[in-house]
């Protein structure tokens, strides 16, 4: 019973100590390789990721990929697809394919922008509520209750119409309305993580509150946030296209998949010019579906338990 054992032997002697539940939780989170392997098992999620990547690429390289200027007006309006205009032209005579390609920019930036804003706000409030508890928690939770009482599409619609519809307005409005879900999620994780010994150890080691919050608690609360944010991107894309469809989003002449579809509110376009409205509709569906599949794959591989 003296300290003569060599480090190596200690390793073999007690290498197979059974895992506690907490350790299991930490284990799968920390090894990125494990998460990636698990994610790759989901064929739909991988396919979704590829499609999303292609769309992001399309959005980034729109000027190179688009055959025409999306706002250039050609003589032949409402022209059926041809060699020059692969998807035809719209009611004003603009090239539909080029507008489709530029529309990817709107969808991708709304998705990423709005979600970035509300994840930031939600994480901050969630951390505060969960870590400080007591009245801070009560106040923040009541605020989330208030926000979650509003039917969000309607409020967004009203706010956008007051503030003036534009891409930026949409991002800001969604960003400032959608944070409570994230806040609640983060709060829940913080409540359980702050009880762990490693956070207690941080306090005992005299770490500052920001250090404990951002270095020790937040990284361990990330999985559900990532999953939720992914579904949130899909949600934001639907919201933007819905607003643009109703004329309360991205305004023409700027191209967005939603406002391209709104032309189909005319019966003639709807019945006899499918090339104008079917491609943008399919693009929205494809983008949203792909992102949802990615979210589902992430949820499974990060083993979060929410059923969003």
């Amino acid at each position: 019973m003296t300290l003569t054992e060599k480090p190596g032997t200690a390793g073999t002697a007690d290498a197979v100590v059974p895992d506690s539940a907490a350790a299991a939780l930490g284990r799968e989170r920390s090894s990125a390789g494990f998460v990636v392997r698990r994610f790759l098992r989901h064929r739909m999620a991988v396919a979704g990721l590829v499609i999303v990547a292609l769309m992001v690429l399309t959005a980034a390289l729109a000027p190179l990929l688009a055959p025409h200027d999306p706002n250039q007006i050609f003589g032949s309006f409402e022209a059926a697809p041809s060699a020059d205009h692969l998807l035809g032209t719209d009611a004003v005579g603009r090239d539909v394919l080029s507008r489709l390609i530029y529309g990817a920019r709107v969808s991708m930036s709304v998705g990423v922008g709005a979600v970035a804003v509300y994840v930031l706000i939600g994480v901050l409030f969630g951390l505060l509520a969960g870590y400080y508890g007591r009245w801070v928690d009560s106040v923040i939770m009541r605020i989330t209750d208030v926000f979650m009482s509003f039917p969000y599409f309607m409020v967004i619609l009203i706010l956008v119409s007051i503030l003036g519809p534009s891409l930026l307005t949409i991002i800001v409005v969604i960003g400032f309305l959608a944070w409570p879900m994230i806040a609640r999620l983060v709060r829940g994780s913080v409540l359980s993580i702050k009880q762990t010994d490693y956070v207690q150890a941080g306090v005992a080691l005299g770490y500052s509150t920001p250090r404990i919050l951002f270095r020790h608690i937040l990284p361990n609360a990330l999985s559900p946030i990532i999953v939720n944010a992914t579904f949130g991107v899909a949600q934001a894309i639907i919201l933007e296209s819905g607003l643009s469809f109703l004329g309360m989003g991205v305004r023409p002449p700027a191209a967005s998949w939603g406002n391209m579809l709104s032309e189909a509110q005319s019966i003639t376009v709807l019945s006899s010019q499918p090339w104008i409205w079917i491609p943008p509709g399919l693009m929205i569906l494809l983008a949203v579906l792909s992102i949802n599949f990615v979210g589902d794959g992430l949820r499974d591989s990060l083993e979060s338990r929410s059923y969003t």
Binding site: D19, S20, A22, A23, L25, G26, R27, R29, S30, T196, D197, Y198, Q200, A201, G202, A204, L205, G206, Y207, S208, R215, H216, P219, N220
Partner: peptide, 22 residues
Amino acid sequence: RRRRTDLQMVFQDPYSSLNPQI
């Protein structure tokens, strides 16, 4: 917080007392 350099703790459960991400 500054005084804590003088007083430390060793925890019971070596699985949960180390941040798994670091």
